[in-house]
Design a protein around this nucleic acid. Sequence first.
DNA 1: AAGCTTTGACCTATA
DNA 2: TTATAGGTCAAAGCT
Length: 295
Amino acid sequence: MSSTSFTDLLSSSGVDCYEKDEDFRLSGSVSLYQNGGFYQERTGSGLPKFKTAQPPPLPISQSSHHFAFSDLLESPLLLSSSHTLISPTTGAFPFQGFNGSDLPWQLQPQSQLQSQPSNASSALQERYGVQDLHKKQDLIATQSFGSDRQMKVPSYMVSRNSNDGYGWRKYGQKQVKKSENPRSYFKCTYPNCVSKKIVESASDGQITEIIYKGGHNHPKPEYTKRPSVSVSSSSNARRMFNPSSVVSETHDQSENSSISFDYSDLEQKSLKSEYGEVDEEEEQPGIKRLKREGE
DNA sequence: AAGCTTTGACCTATA
DNA sequence: TTATAGGTCAAAGCT
């Protein structure tokens, strides 16, 4: 990675990562993703709705839009859409640390290229199907990070999202029409934090989709604070978690990207590891495989 | 006792 | 304007 970090580029381009999503939620991201079959629903005011529309059959396997990270950086869209490239998952995308030395990604260097669009797409409420994620992991492990940007979602992140170290309180559950699986609604338990997530789980308990809304306005709580949601106790959840999809419906993620994502355990592991050497043993097989291959 | 989940009702946005 | 769907509230029960 060059001496210029992505964060630097963002800041130098006037992008305020701390900006509220409402301020930039849209700004230019549309055209970038239209190619990928994405679109954002806009409100009458021209701003995309918080609840952006789900793209129609997502061309997951279509890699018509795989662009290089450098392209992204060079793209004028970056300036405006970079906001949306933010950490999709309430912390799952510690973009702020997106520089050579601080790369949270546990993927190979080239994954940076793909993870970038992945972020963007995530910010645009991209959804991944179960099979897609499996493909994702598979590709990551076997095809040295295929070109499909959907495949670039760091797998570790997926489970991070379900057990991201934050405290979540379930405040509702609803059976929605467009999905036969019930949705559970969670709020971050941190005071004044408006972060929410919607977890769609199948009857067998497997999580089929996670949608994040809003970013955390606080660092990840210490594990000691809430053992019930800590990694240790989340092992079960992880076991249950079939990361079929992680959606970042969160424009607000910009906040996330701005705050210090304390991926403490994760980052420490990943950072001390070589690229691609994933050290998350609790993660899914795909990750483990990746790690082994990286060794 | 505190915090969490459950669940039906209510609210709001959209077609 | 109305019906419907999605999201949220809040009381009750549970851990």
